[in-house]
Computed example of a mutant assay.
Amino acid sequence: MHRGKGMKFVGDSRVPAERKPNVPKDYSEYPGKTEAFWPNFLLREWMVGAVFLIGFLVLTVAHPAPLERVADPTDSGYIPLPDWYFLFLYQLLKYEFAAGQYTVIGAVVIPGVAFGALLLVPWLDSGKERRPLKRPIASGLMLLGVASIIFLTWESVDDHDWEAAAQQGEIVEGVEVDESAEGYEIYQSQESCIGCHGGDMLGGAAGPNIFESDYDTEEVMEIIQNGLGEMPGGQFEGSDEELETLAAFIANDGQDPDNGNGGGDDEDNNEENEED
């Protein structure tokens, strides 16, 4: 094409004299470099997605979800642990400057500043350069943020008491507590007992399962009055009769001793008498 032929000069730009429709080129003009969206592209994507889906299903079968026992809102000693992608935020709440009366700083202010800065990045960094070495401030802040997240996540995992967490979430089977028994009502009135052993009496982070050990009524009463190990004594708030009723209820594995439950020998004798 000769200089200026078929062109209009409009200021400093050159515009074609004849406008042509913008028609995309056919696939045949790019052999081996492109393909039809349907069905070639979608078929390959579906095959890759099916492979990942099958792999995910295999993992869920091989490694079931780590379920815990039924949640007990009265268990004040329970140690919570969020999912791994929130561990760095959870760790912030353990520091003095972001905990206690400063919880708002760790829960709202610091995360708000960090994520707000990410939203403002297009306006804060309007340079045309995209190479990391040519953007020292942006690259440095990015590396600092990634390093902080990794460090806080590691600290959260390292500080967590995994043995206590496994014990507090252990599913206890075969224990059915008689909630209509008088001993259970007395237990529910003792906040110090519920705070350590939970409202269901199956234990928590601060206290074990009440029915783990085979103590008789007198031994249970002595433990309640004088304590055992880390369990302090003198925490029971009630009369001596209530203490004895509660101890008998615990010694009978959560069953009312007056209704015959747990008394295997007495039941056998009654059955023998009826047969005679």
Rank of each mutant, 00 (worst) to 15 (best):
M1W: 10
H2L: 13
A17H: 06
E18P: 00
D26I: 13
D26R: 15
E29G: 06
E29V: 15
G32T: 00
F37W: 12
W38M: 08
R44P: 00
W46A: 10
V48K: 14
G49H: 07
A50F: 09
F52D: 03
G55H: 07
T60F: 07
A62P: 05
A62T: 06
A65N: 04
V70W: 07
A71F: 12
D72V: 11
S76W: 14
G77R: 03
P80N: 05
Y85V: 09
L87R: 09
Y90K: 13
L92G: 05
K94S: 11
G100S: 05
T103W: 15
T103L: 14
I110A: 12
V113W: 07
F115L: 15
A117N: 05
L119F: 04
L120H: 01
L120Y: 02
S126Q: 14
L141G: 04
S148N: 14
I149V: 15
I150A: 15
F151T: 07
V157M: 10
D161E: 06
G169Q: 05
I171Q: 12
I171E: 06
V172H: 07
E176K: 13
E179H: 10
E182Q: 15
S192A: 07
I194T: 09
G195F: 07
G198F: 08
M201T: 09
L202Q: 11
G203Q: 01
A205C: 08
G207H: 06
G207K: 01
P208Y: 10
E212P: 00
T217C: 08
V220H: 07
G227E: 04
G227D: 02
G229V: 06
G229E: 02
E230H: 13
M231F: 05
E237I: 08
E237W: 01
G238D: 08
E241N: 03
T245S: 06
A248K: 01
I250C: 01
Q255G: 03
D256T: 04
D258L: 11
G262H: 01
G263W: 06
G264S: 06
E267C: 04
D268H: 08
N270G: 12
E271C: 01
E272I: 14
E275D: 15
